[in-house]
Design a binder for these strands. Structure first.
Length: 866
RNA sequence: GCCCCAAUGGCGGAAUCGGUAGACGCGGCAGACUCAAAAUCUGUUGCCUUCGGGCGUGCCUGUUCGAGUCAGGCUUGGGGCACCA
């Protein structure tokens, strides 16, 4: 009887309802089983699931289902990164409430994700905008405050004039806001900060332990933390204009060895000394104002000239008091790094050299490259930053750079004018946002008592829902009553903090909350976290390599230090997945055209695209699917026709998961054909094969043996591929295995073949199941089981069946392949050599020359050297 | 400018250790089934060739019996950081 076509959409609805009714994926703590926590970065509830989501969540689901079959107690939860600007923009543009808009989107996306058949424990679902979630986040904020990890300071901030909010340094990309793309301005504002810099060294050292993270991400974090080792030292200042409070100037350098090459000092325009001097110096005032106007865009920084203003002050060299160095205010010195002041050594630093050349300052080489003469070595326009020997440097002469650094620091410390210091590029994390749709900062400011934490009994500090978005700025600040409260300490009139927390705070601990989402008395249940954490496999986009992953690492440490958790690193394994891309199309007028409105004709060089009514379309490069370029394939429409399994299978086939995958209609068709093929194979094998639990025959026919070998080999290959997240390789092995069924299904086998057919069909079902779980259940059922495949253990491959009795070895002559040799697996080297030399093809290639040597690598290769 | 990664047929990509390059998929070609189409199945598919063979993993050197894989030097593409002292 011919199999009916597999009706994917229908069967998928069926199996999803079975899983839901049986609560198949509800997870409980079970100390008897090894745990495995697999997590995909939770989505922002934009309202629609796109193919990128499908790929991301399918990867996690394959891992979750595979580990589950392998006997692990798997935690695989889902939630929503639900605070953020789009909800406010929707409120402004369409007059809807941010809360209503967000929860509607969540409902829509939940339904879409559920139709993908993901093995998620939906009972743990959370949204960061849930009161139950942000209540705990407010507790954490206050715990951090208590612990000294939160502080308030007036600071120069990155202000996004489009989104009307402050951005963290991490959120400024090329001088523009990461969301709005607007040119970022500098403003002075009172802001809340997390002391992430307290953990700079620990965050850096911890990277070395993360051996299941991509090296690329670790490197990016290492660079971001930006450790540099050097020295801080004080110069005595003199000069008529010298303000009383500034008789000394502290600078930071990573090259203390070049101290004798110093020819000037330079301070930032924002340095307190500059401000003090400017009070009595109009020219300097103007210079500083000019520097402040300088843009922060990439282009402006690149083209900006090194400029300085001579303050007239002189600084005494710490080791040569008679040497007086001029002190400049210079536009290239950052107040935020080191001490906001440097000594300039033009010979060995390019910026210092450019500056010195402009202002005709001395350029004295003090590090001489190997093989150069100290007297003859000159630096003109290229600074020498390499290694060498010290010269023109008093007590340092002849030393290596390393030795000189140590010696200078030793002497500075002995004189009490300097010390060794390590600096980090990493700055504290500014978390205040002047926005409505975020977690309120649970702080009250009282004119009498100052900063007062909101008492625990008053948490959560709820967001008011009667807010007005008609004017720009923060609706919380404008709200008639919300911010007015009584001071919890003195009872007097006080005000709430009206800023909300950066949404990156929300995503910095959600992975821990998933371990005990019902917990109300505290942010997390430490016992639950001890069992589930760390996340064993975290999966998400490379775009979070720095921000989210660094913040989460910081949060885990801070939570540990507040007694909530017992670990430092939240994510033991990290995988960054590639995007789903699609060709782009444009019509004659240059307008983007959707793939749905394009017909492709021809192939290779003659391949061309036309609109449905026959007008020519230009084919552009494959790019990330985006609405603006119209190159999107809608998962819902695709699923309705081909089912979720087809989409799941296709987005993981072809390309390695860390790389982009190109969506093509032909490729998707291929996945669809394969689903039908698996169904036919299993249906056929269920018909012709043995019944479930049939005894294993004592003898197998050659045909049966071949199928069994293919089955066990495929199982082994897929298992190993999945262990290393090689989804595309696992899929290739599945295809290869499916190809092996043909001979067995065509012939009229004996009982041993019937057994082999059942075994192979079961293996195929197990193998495809993590990718196509609905088809998996359908096949499992067709094979005669009334249990769920989702609960069935992964089969074990029989090692004895993985190897053949004979092997095919390549035979080379002088490194060139000339022939093959089929020989017993356990043949001795001598036997292999003898057989190889008997080959006519070998004799021919040798052309009568004497054989000098024969290299035999058993089971692999023979190389005859003549 | 500094740092990192990649490059394999018409296309996406395979190739635990240095050991038969091109698994698997897509596309192409040929055939079977069919009145025909769809669907399915079978075979074939790196390039050149005087049919002996020759050449092939971005380019050039090197190490080795043997290099996609290791080393040195380039080229091109992608990514990260960037006035960080």
């Amino acid at each position: 009887m011919a199999a009916e076509r597999y009706n994917a959409p229908d069967r998928e609805r069926h199996w999803q309802s079975v899983w839901r009714e049986q609560k198949t994926f509800k997870t409980r703590r079970d100390p008897a089983k090894p745990k495995y926590y697999v997590l995909e970065m939770f989505p922002y509830p934009s309202g629609r699931v796109h193919m990128g989501h499908v790929r991301n969540y399918t990867m996690g689901d394959v891992v979750a289902r595979y580990k589950r079959a392998r006997g692990f107690n798997v935690l695989h939860p889902m939630g929503w990164d639900a605070f953020g600007l789009p909800a406010e923009n929707a409120a402004i543009e369409r007059g809807v409430s941010p809360k209503g808009w967000t929860y509607d989107n969540i409902a829509a996306m939940r339904a879409q994700l559920q139709s993908l058949g993901l093995s998620l424990d939906w009972s743990r679902e959370l949204a960061t905008c849930d009161e139950s979630y942000y209540k705990q986040q407010q507790r954490l904020f206050l715990d951090f405050y208590e612990k000294g990890l939160v502080y308030r300071k007036k600071s120069r901030v990155n202000w996004d004039p489009v989104d009307n909010t402050v951005l963290a340094n991490e959120q400024v990309i090329d001088g523009r806001g990461w969301r709005s793309g607007a040119l970022v301005e500098q403003r002075d504002l009172e802001q809340w900060f997390f002391r992430i810099t307290d953990y700079a060294e620990d965050l850096l050292a911890g990277l070395d332990t993360l051996n299941r993270w991509p090296e690329k991400v670790r490197l990016m974090q290492r660079n971001w933390i930006g450790k540099s080792e050097g020295a801080r030292l004080r110069f005595r200042l003199e000069g008529e204009a010298l303000p009383k409070a500034h008789t000394e100037l502290e600078i930071y350098t990573t090259r203390p060895d070049t101290i004798f090459g110093a020819s000037f000092l330079a301070i930032s325009p924002q340095h307190p000394l500059a401000a003090a001097l400017a009070k009595k110096n109009k020219g300097l005032r103007e210079f500083i104002a000019e520097c402040a106007r300088m843009g922060v865009s990439q282009e402006e920084i690149d083209t900006a000239e090194k400029r300085g203003f001579d303050t007239g002050l002189k600084a005494a060299h710490p080791f040569r008091a008679q040497t007086k160095l001029p002190v400049y205010v210079a536009n290239f010195i950052l107040m935020e790094y080191g001490t906001g002041a440097i000594f300039g050594c033009p010979a060995h630093d390019q910026r210092d050299l450019d500056f010195a050349n402009k202002y005709k300052l001395k350029v004295k080489p003090v590090v001489i490259p190997e093989g150069e003469d100290a007297k003859a070595f000159k630096v003109k326009t290229e600074a020498y930053t390499g290694d060498g020997r010290l010269a023109n440097s008093s007590f340092l002469d002849g030393m290596s750079v390393e030795a000189a650094k140590a010696e200078v620091i030793r002497r500075l410390e002995a004189k009490g004018v300097g010390k060794r210091e390590t600096n980090y590029r990493l700055r504290d994390w500014g978390v205040s946002r002047q926005r409505y749709w975020g977690c309120p900062i649970p702080i009250i400011r009282c004119p009498a008592c100052g900063v007062v934490p909101t008492p625990d009994a008053d948490l959560p500090v709820r967001l008011p829902e009667d807010v007005d978005f008609s004017a720009p700025g923060n609706p919380l600040d404008r709200h008639p009553t919300w911010k007015h409260v009584k001071c919890p300490q003195c009872g007097g009139a006080a005000q709430r903090e009206t800023d909300t927390l950066d949404t990156f705070v929300d995503s910095s601990w959600y992975f821990a909350r998933f371990c005990s989402p019902e917990e109300d008395a505290r942010p997390v249940d430490p016992e639950a976290c001890d069992y589930w954490l760390p996340v064993d496999q975290y999966i998400g986009g490379i775009e979070h390599a720095i921000l989210h992953l660094l913040y989460s690492r910081f949060f885990t440490r801070a939570m540990r230090d507040c007694g909530h958790l017992n670990l430092a690193e939240p994510f033991a394994g990290l995988f960054t997945q590639g995007m789903v891309i699609h060709e782009t199309y444009r019509d004659g007028a240059g307008k983007w055209v959707s793939p749905d409105d394009v017909r492709i004709e021809g192939d290779g060089p003659t391949r061309r695209a036309l609109t449905l009514d026959g007008r020519p379309v230009e084919i552009g490069p494959a790019e990330k699917m985006s609405k603006s370029k119209k190159n999107v394939v809608d998962p819902d429409a695709f699923k309705a026709h081909y089912g979720a399994d087809t989409a799941r299978w296709f987005v993981l086939s072809d390309s390695p998961p860390e790389r982009d995958v190109l969506w093509t209609d032909d490729g998707a068709q291929g996945a669809w054909r394969f689903i039908q093929r698996v169904w036919r194979i299993v249906d056929d094998a269920a018909e012709k094969g043995a019944k479930p639990g049939a005894p294993k025959p004592a003898e197998f026919s050659a045909e049966a043996m071949e199928l069994r070998r293919a089955a066990h080999r495929a199982l082994d290959k897929v298992s190993r591929a999945l262990d290393s997240l090689g989804f595309n390789r696992a899929i290739a092995a599945a295809y290869e295995f499916a190809n092996a069924f043909s001979p067995a299904l065509q012939g009229k086998g004996d009982a041993s073949l019937a057994f082999a057919l059942r075994e192979a069909a079961e293996f195929l079902t197990h193998i495809i199941n993590p990718f196509m779980p609905h088809l998996g259940e359908e096949c499992w059922s067709r094979l005669g089981y009334n249990t769920l495949l989702a609960n069935a253990p992964w089969p074990e491959a029989d090692q004895a069946l993985l190897v053949d009795d004979t092997v095919t070895m390549a035979v080379q002559v002088n490194g060139k392949r000339r022939d093959e040799l089929i020989i017993a697996r356990d043949a001795t080297k001598a036997a292999i050599e003898a057989e190889a030399l008997k080959l006519a093809s070998v004799a021919k290639a040798i052309e009568g020359r004497p054989v000098k040597k024969v290299i035999v690598v058993p089971q692999r290769i023979v190389n005859v050297v003549a």
